[in-house]
Amino acid sequence: MAARSKVVGGFREAVADIPDGSTIAFGGFAMPGTPFNLIRALLEQGAKRLTLVANSTGGAQQPRMPDIGMLVENGQVAKVICAFTAATRPTDPIPFTKYYEAGEVEAELVPQGTLAERMRAAGAGIPAFYTPTAVGTELAEGRETRVINGREYLLEYALPLDYAFIRAARADTFGNLRFHRAQRNFNPLMATAAKCTIVEVDEPILPAGGIDADDVHTSGLFVHRLVQVPPAPEGIWPAKRQERRK
């Protein structure tokens, strides 16, 4: 596989051509797997009217890292599709809530497993699926359900993406990826659902074949651009979380 390398020179270059109105997913669950450096680059790049997909909009933990709430604050976002528009604990408000409640940004609130499966389906050629999740709740009101083998299920549609921004521990120049521990989360699914997947990589990028075929988590088939994260402070790395006051 002597294809051209997917390694690009920097984060600015990796996001330079992203047009206004794109749908972009951001990997990560809490800090692991979150593409902090690509978020910062997109803040500087300035694309507007974006639809963002992520587990949460960020800002619930301290220290605050680059998060998609900052893209909202920066006026770049039309809509967010996520599992949290408000904090888990009302005492720890997240920055996004204020913009959402003021009507400055739209949101589609999706249960976390449904969000993951909608992207898995998009990447796997499944247009829609039935799930038991959210049946009987406010989220299911007015929507299509179906009883299968005596149980009620809710119809959910695939969620295709223009771009996926993710983080991985290791990559080769073909784009094969390995994740470390909880870095994996949504990231492999987002890669399959996106037309263009951009990856920030912790370790020096290996020549093609540098990851044994048996050890690849995400095939380079799904990966288009790779950027190695430089050491701090130039690059942004997961920080130790500060515990909140009880």
Binding site: F84, T85, L109, P111, Q112, G113, P132, T133
Partner: peptide
């Protein structure tokens, strides 16, 4: 997941877990 009068909320994985 949602307080009284709140717009939106915080679901996370709770609905998937609770249902299944």
């Amino acid at each position: 997941w949602k307080l009284k009068g709140q717009k939106g909320g915080g679901i996370g994985g709770a609905m998937d877990l609770a249902a299944c």
